[in-house]
């Protein structure tokens, strides 16, 4: 099968072609790149929805409930479920899928697990590319689940059109940490496990933070859900649709498309230039010399980095 046939099969909704293309993209092959450039003009239709929050808050359980609601609404839904690779073995247990596994055979659903392997392009860039594939393949909704910690996730939140921050009632720390940055990346805040005590207090706290944040164009929506009992899910999906309609109003959409394009290209440039830089640095005599000096205390690290950067440019 040649690459243009392969690309056409993806656009026609062939699952096997789609699935194999995702692997190509994850492995950052030339084939993957060519497929992407073939299908890119067919993207832009899907809702791209991010779910983020600490491990164990119930993201996967919530995503399952949301998929079920989307099925009722006849929406084709794809999920990119990202789990961390082990820093020791580079291996991973991709454990999100098991929570949604009962939906596997549904014709409207496609679930793909990804390890956050440290590829050349970084996690955000491979997920953007996979997301574009799903979009071009005709999915109405593409959901990305990530553990909320670190720059990767902020990058992914920037790439998603609507980001849902998932929190729990009791986790005081988690909600506290919302002050630092999460307000800016979330359009919807869902207090999951609202069957447990403390959910009203958590919601009130989030609402207070929302009312304090004055510089936001979109006022975030906050709500309580019980993912395990599939409660509050209609309201959540309605909130997502509300944000999506807001985004897709003509003027907003142009601005947003451009903002997204900027984020995507920027994150690609960031990882490309970083990797190029690393390659140059690692094959450089000056680097070795300067690092030896840092090791022996002759030069400090900042000066060393400046010397090496100066050498490259």
């Amino acid at each position: 099968m040649n690459i243009s046939e392969w690309s056409q099969n993806i656009l026609n909704g062939n699952k096997r072609s789609l699935s194999r293309a995702i692997t190509e993209i994850e492995s950052e092959t030339e084939t993957g790149k060519k497929i992407l450039s073939n299908i890119y003009s067919s993207t832009g239709r899907a809702q791209i929805i991010g779910f983020t929050g600490s491990a164990g808050v119930g993201k996967s359980t919530l995503v399952r409930a949301v998929i079920k609601e989307q099925i009722l609404r006849k929406k084709k839904t794809a999920v990119i479920a990202i789990d961390p690779s082990s820093p020791f073995s580079q291996g991973a247990i991709l454990g999100d899928r098991i929570r949604m596994q009962d939906l596997t055979n549904n014709e409207l659903v496609f679930i793909r697990s990804m390890a956050s392997r440290k590829g050349l392009g970084g996690l955000a860039s491979s997920s953007v590319n996979v997301m574009n594939l799903f979009d071009a393949a005709g999915f109405d909704v593409v959901i990305i689940e990530t553990v909320g910690a670190g720059q990767d996730e902020v990058d992914i939140a920037n790439i998603a059109q609507t980001t849902i921050i998932v929190a729990n009632p009791s986790a005081g720390d988690e909600i506290q940490s919302m002050k630092s940055g999460l307000m800016e990346i979330g359009q919807i805040f869902a207090v999951n496990k609202s069957d447990l005590p403390g959910s009203d207090a958590a919601l009130a706290y989030i609402n207070a933070l929302i009312s304090l944040a004055t510089n936001l164009e979109w006022t975030p929506i906050s709500l309580k859900v019980i993912a395990r009992r599939e409660q509050g899910i209609k309201e959540l999906v309605d909130a997502i649709d509300m944000h999506q309609s807001y985004l897709r109003e003509e003027t907003n959409w142009l601005i947003h498309r451009k903002e997204m394009a900027k984020n995507q290209v920027r994150s690609l440039i960031k990882s490309m230039s970083y990797n190029n830089l690393l390659k140059i640095i690692e094959n450089n005599e000056i680097t070795d010399k300067v690092i030896t000096e840092v090791a022996s205390g002759v030069t400090d690290p900042i000066t060393a980095a400046e010397i090496i950067m100066g050498e490259i440019s």
Binding site: S86, F88, S89, G91, I93, L94, G95, I98
Partner: peptide, 13 residues
């Protein structure tokens, strides 16, 4: 153990 050997593992339940 496959994870610890560097593989990416999905378990279905």
């Amino acid at each position: 153990s496959l994870r610890d050997a560097g593989m990416e593992v999905i378990y279905t339940g």
